[in-house]
């Protein structure tokens, strides 16, 4: 088992390098670069002539190494990542990309994990509950609700929730992670007073992020629910479930001990591919709700060809995909003896 995991980790590292290369190349594909944008900015806003602006742009390219050949740019990017932990420099923000991402990553991950948990837990539980009642009213209602939730545009639900919060509940502040009065409050647990302020800040945070969690989470319920329901139906018709019933187990025991663990198998495999999906899932809702997450960062960077941010974000998604698959593989080894012994 240790050998199996070591092998999988080794392969994963190679895959990550491949992803880094591909994300870097993909970012270079659109015509032009950040310096071109800078040039037209100088002409339009700064009143510079064509040649002056071109000279400025050229200076810019030299300063940030954009005039070097692509393979060299890639190698420098990778070298700095490995040796200095630096992901490059953002032209637009004039800051280190690593810093930018590090600032947003924990909060993005928090949102993503919460949304993912919502979609997985709700999906699995509802799937288990409706499977034995196939084609019943409850089954059809659950399917209807799940499909509507996944079909409605997320930005639209976000707007609707925002409207409701502001005009019906009269919540004062709906965008960003915190209300203004909590932004400077530190996460501290030193004294009783600090703890109570931290607690208030946490509640404020939840009040701001729940719409995104719910929107991104419920949108994913349909898939999990239908997959779980289908698996459960397969397993409930399996011979070993009849064996379990013929032992005299209660229906609940048959489900818990026999049908559900077998039905979880494909869900766990699919979890591996959903880590990056859940990072992107919150994108639309985050834009509307004005939450600065990785998704919004990637979107702006793509628009103004801020290549190091884009490539780094893509790389992070790729790493998460690989990590997710690795985690799913390990989870399967733990769950399923057939994988463990072959």
């Amino acid at each position: 088992m240790i050998g199996y995991i070591a092998r999988r980790v080794g392969v994963s590292i190679a895959v990550v390098l491949g992803i880094a290369l591909v994300s870097f190349i993909v970012i270079q594909l659109p015509p032009g670069d950040y310096a071109d944008g800078y040039k037209s900015f100088l002409i339009e806003q700064g009143g510079a002539t064509e040649s002056e602006a071109e000279a400025q742009a050229e200076l810019f390219r030299q300063r940030y190494g954009l005039d070097k050949p692509l393979p060299l740019q890639f190698l420098v990017w990778i070298r700095d990542m490995v040796t200095k932990g630096s992901f490059g420099f953002s032209f637009a923000y004039k800051r280190d990309v690593g810093e930018l991402i590090a600032e947003r990553f924990p909060r993005t991950l928090l949102l993503a994990v919460l949304a993912h948990l919502t979609s997985t837990v709700v999906g699995i539980v509802v799937g288990i509950l409706v499977a034995p009642r196939q084609y019943s009213l409850a089954d059809n209602l659950a399917a209807f609700a799940a499909f509507v939730l996944s079909a409605l545009p997320r930005f639209w639900i976000a707007l609707a929730i925002m409207f409701f919060l502001v005009f019906t509940l009269e919540q004062e502040h709906v965008t960003a992670f915190h209300s203004p009065q909590f932004v400077v409050v530190p996460w501290a647990f030193g004294s009783l007073e600090e703890i109570s302020r931290t607690w208030a800040k946490l509640l404020d945070l939840l009040q701001h992020i729940w719409p995104v969690v719910v929107i991104a989470g419920l949108g994913g319920v349909a898939r999990n629910m239908r997959v779980m329901r289908g698996n459960m139906l397969d397993e409930l018709n399996a011979q070993y479930v009849t064996t379990a019933r013929s032992k005299g187990l209660t229906e609940g025991q048959v489900m818990r001990r026999h049908a559900v663990p077998n039905a979880l198998h494909p869900i766990i495999m699919y979890q591996g591919t959903s880590l990056p999906y859940m990072l992107q899932g919150e994108l639309q809702a985050s834009i509307v709700m004005g939450l600065p997450t990785i998704g919004t960062l990637l979107l702006t960077s793509l628009r103004n060809e801020d290549i190091y941010i884009s490539a780094s974000c893509l790389l992070i998604y790729g790493v998460l995909l690989v990590a997710g698959n690795l985690i799913a593989d390990i989870a399967l080894v733990v769950l399923d003896p057939r994988v463990r012994f072959s």
């Binding site: 070993y240 379990a244 077998n262 003896p337």
Partner: peptide
């Protein structure tokens, strides 16, 4: 009353010893 079935391949749960 106990029962055994035709398909020994599928009548045991694959996940338990």
């Amino acid at each position: 009353i106990a029962m055994i079935f035709q398909e020994p391949m599928t009548s045991l749960n694959p996940l338990h010893p």
